[in-house]
Amino acid sequence: MRSLKFALIGVLAFGLAGATRAAEPVKIRMSWVVPVANWGSLVLEKKELMQHLGKSYTLETVRYQGTPQTITAIANNELEVASLAYSTFPIAIENANIADLRVIGDEFQDGVPGYFTDLYFVRKDSGINKVEDLKGKVVGTNGGGSAIDVAQRAMLHKHGLEPNRDYTLLEAPLPAMPAMLLEKKADLVPAVLPFAFNPKLREEGKVLFNQTEALGVTQMIILVARQSFIDKNRAAMVDYMEDLLRVVHWYLDPKNHDEVAKIASKLTKVPPERFGWLFTKQDNYRDPDLMPNLEALQRNVDVVRELGFVKQPLDVKQHADLSLVQEARARLEKGK
């Protein structure tokens, strides 16, 4: 009972501390799902580059299990800057009624010429040589409506194959996909980074198609925030974006690669030498100025609608606010 009381006092004190702090810097919470892939997992590892941190804003990075929880958090104002896939962005606006959700930056893009594009593998000995051969087969997915799932469905749709009617979808986590294919649980699996480099997968599997063939350039993951929050805290958000750009420039700079690999290793417990690909041309394209490709995003969002995941058309330009990132960029230019 005593410890309970202490716990209660602790909670109260914490709450009070939070209340007094609210008068000072703006609190920004940023989400991430997959370590290293999302900027949210990396930014605070280089907080010494963030000049406005603790002055005009404070930053908390929070891990989320997936998109559903992320959308719930945005709707409840528990999260200010989130990573969303092109496929979940229209869902958040249409179904979760977050009408003031805005694209504020790029996280990464798929299929930009010269960079990585997601690969879709079959077994070499499977006799599957073209997409049509997948009729009656089992296709691995990480969940209906995910970025990967939509790309895959779009490709099969182009070749006249529909889920449930022509092929079975089997859900499994992305890291388990190579094993699912090699253990013959699935006949087609998506391979994202770093699992696409799996030597066993490369040896026993072959690429049936890549994502570029399905969707062209894909604006895979975007950074989003609510207009209401941006309007209220514009100055702090520009400061934050400026700092974020500094951090992103640092990570993408080839001369920092060794240190970057070390940070990635620390987050994932994978030896640093296995991160040779990270932020190079072998990786997905990441815009150094966090500029999203709105034209690609528009195309991608339209596919999401064609496949029936959302009903209303969405004009991406109406739901983007790139002024933050542009202002931040201009400030960095001037500082040089």
Binding site: P68, I91, A92, N95, G144, E171, F309
Partner: peptide, 21 residues
């Protein structure tokens, strides 16, 4: 919820993915 397919959990997860509250 984690493996998908039919069942109350699967239906709930699908609804959740599409923000169908």
């Amino acid at each position: 919820m984690l493996m998908g397919g039919y069942g109350l959990g699967g239906a709930m997860m699908t609804a959740s993915r599409f923000a169908n509250s």
